[in-house]
């Protein structure tokens, strides 16, 4: 039977369909892996970023596909809601990859509330801290829309949640 570590290494190959530079491990949505030796099944627990996130079904399918490719046949993907996903679970390397991709990573911890007008989100393109929010809601549920006042480029911010 395959080891838990092995499963995690396979999961590294599954990317977020909306932000393809991030693996689902970077994103922090994989909560646990249970190996059942008796009936030779692998259960992978994932949690949605947002309730209505349309990527969840695709992620579940991609997880199963990746496991099949690696020869792991009996896979159950279980969705869990509690504890609710938070951007605090995103890995540091995930945040760096996001920034390089052109999306500003979450700036603060989810439990510290910073009023949106006080939050400084550096521009992922020119790194300027002189930016302003255009809209708290962006192209997907997890992002806000910002504009850099120096290089004048609009950019997405992966909002703290």
């Amino acid at each position: 039977m395959v080891s838990k570590e092995k499963i995690y290494s396979y999961l590294e190959n599954v990317s977020d369909p909306e932000v393809p530079v991030l693996s689902i491990l970077d994103l922090g949505i994989v909560r646990d892996v249970n190996i059942n030796e008796e009936n030779e099944t692998v259960e992978i627990l994932i949690t949605p970023t947002y309730s209505g996130c349309p990527a969840m079904q695709m992620i579940a399918m991609n997880v199963k596909m990746e496991m099949l490719t690696q020869g792991v046949k009996n896979v159950i993907v279980t969705e869990i809601l509690s504890p609710a996903w938070t951007t605090d679970w995103m890995t540091e390397s995930g945040k760096r990859k996001l920034n390089e991709y052109g999306i500003a990573p979450p700036q603060n911890k989810s439990n510290e509330y910073i009023p949106i007008e006080d939050l400084i989100v550096p521009c992922p393109i020119c790194q300027s801290k002189n930016t302003s929010v255009i809209s708290e809601f962006g192209s997907t549920a997890c992002k806000s829309l910002y504009r850099c006042n120096d290089c004048l480029e609009p950019f997405d911010y992966f909002k703290c949640h």
């Binding site: 949605p48 947002y50 309730s51 209505g52 349309p54 809209s135 962006g138 192209s139 829309l145």
Partner: peptide
């Protein structure tokens, strides 16, 4: 546009909660 996107986002959250 920003309001359009915001309302669609909020709609999605609500439909997501309904699904759960």
């Amino acid at each position: 546009l920003e309001v359009d996107i915001a309302l669609s986002n909020i709609a999605l959250d609500n439909i997501g909660a309904a699904r759960s």
